[in-house]
Design a protein around this nucleic acid. Structure first.
Lengths: 213, 213
DNA sequence: GTCTACAAGATTGTTAACATTTGGTCGTCG
DNA sequence: CGACGACCAAATGTTAACAATCTTGTAGAC
């Protein structure tokens, strides 16, 4: 009834949206019922999500939502940093005038959400901006890798979003990225993106130091 | 009889070693027989390798070894470039004296194979060097991504290895990387790695221009 | 009271049969 | 001679039952 890819996407979304929390067990029968499909389809989805790094499977012991430690989240963000910088550079190279307008518009909307303290909306615009930059870059490989890395650290990203005063800093950094992309300056775009993610890493690091022991 | 992970690894190896060429169909029954297991295990392996980017699957039409175009191979190498530079920097930061000795030893062996024109052996040392750098870096995330990217472009890498005069250039570049890592200079290590992979990209680009129309 | 042995339940792993889809072949008709 | 359509074979997709494995709870011995 439901093709395998659909299950994979649905389950991925449900994990990312927090309906299944890190550590939660993923029982095949239960999922089969929930998504109205056979166990085989669920198994395939679990295998796929395991190689994506979102799910952990142990022989004869079943699957569970993978827990991501802080140190791992930092490494993920470091990898994202270099890849997104590549993307930003390529976006600066390939973006068209229409794209420029769209990027500027996103920044304006972000500015508005920050002024009104709408954390949720800001977070969505954040995702949108990064996604559009990936698409504009034309670099399918880097785009795919970054999308995956983002998913893996989604939980930690979430905590970041609700940190007080973080949106303001973040907004400036995003504006700088867009400025560089719009002006077609590849190196500046890459640098701005690196600076942005360095700042994210710093926050993660501080949070880790404060909470781990 | 054979656990799923084993099949996945075996099939991956057989694809990378060229026993299954790009475009070759991967029939479930045939593979089940070849690896002495059920179709279910084969299916799981195919799903896993599909999300790894090595296999292509089409609904109701079966799986085949994914073909990688030159432009895709270039993008793969570009992504590898930034990730391996990150790895080189981390390796420079974390490598211990024993590691330094090992790296220098690998370079010496490489020098010997180049002098004796042993392309095959050089290629293996090449892989070994990159792998050890990944391990020394301690950056599991970047290491995993690079390993995957290397697999995806394995076929094009192969063509590179047999190019005349390429080993000599490559050797100098690798020596530069090791020098930087051994001296603990993170930035220099990253730059040397970038230079190395830029050179690989250039070769791919020239080959592409010469062969695609 | 704690530890071990064992049995019951739950869950994954495997197999086999069945259903569906695809692609091609052959034959007929225009 | 070419085009259309019905069949047929091959392969994938799906389902259900069975086997193997792990976990949990319990009873008994020390």
């Amino acid at each position: 009834m439901a093709p395998m890819d659909t299950i994979t996407n649905d389950l991925r979304d449900d994990i990312l949206s927090g309906q299944f929390a890190p550590g939660d067990r993923l029982l095949e029968i239960q999922l089969a019922e929930q998504y109205d499909c056979g166990r085989a389809a669920v198994r395939s989805a679990l295998v796929a999500l395991t190689t994506e790094g979102l799910v952990e499977r142990e022989e004869n012991r079943g699957a569970s939502v993978r827990r991501i430690s802080i140190t791992e989240a930092i490494q993920i963000t470091e990898a994202r940093s270099v890849l997104e910088s590549l993307i930003a550079a390529q976006a600066a190279k390939h973006a068209l005038p229409d794209d420029h307008a769209e990027l500027r518009d996103i920044i304006e909307q972000m500015r508005s959400t920050v002024a009104n303290d709408e954390g949720k909306a800001y977070s969505e615009l954040n995702r949108l901006l990064h996604r559009r930059l990936r698409e504009m870059s034309g670099h399918d490989i880097a785009a795919e890798l970054v999308a995956n890395l983002r998913n893996r650290a989604a939980h930690h990203q979430y905590r970041l979003a609700v940190m007080p005063g973080r949106s303001a800093d973040s907004l400036d950094q995003h504006a700088a990225i867009v400025d560089a992309v719009v002006s077609g300056d590849e190196a500046a775009a890459a640098d701005a993106m690196t600076a942005h993610l360095e700042s994210v890493i710093e926050v993660l690091q501080r949070w880790g130091d404060a909470n781990v022991r």
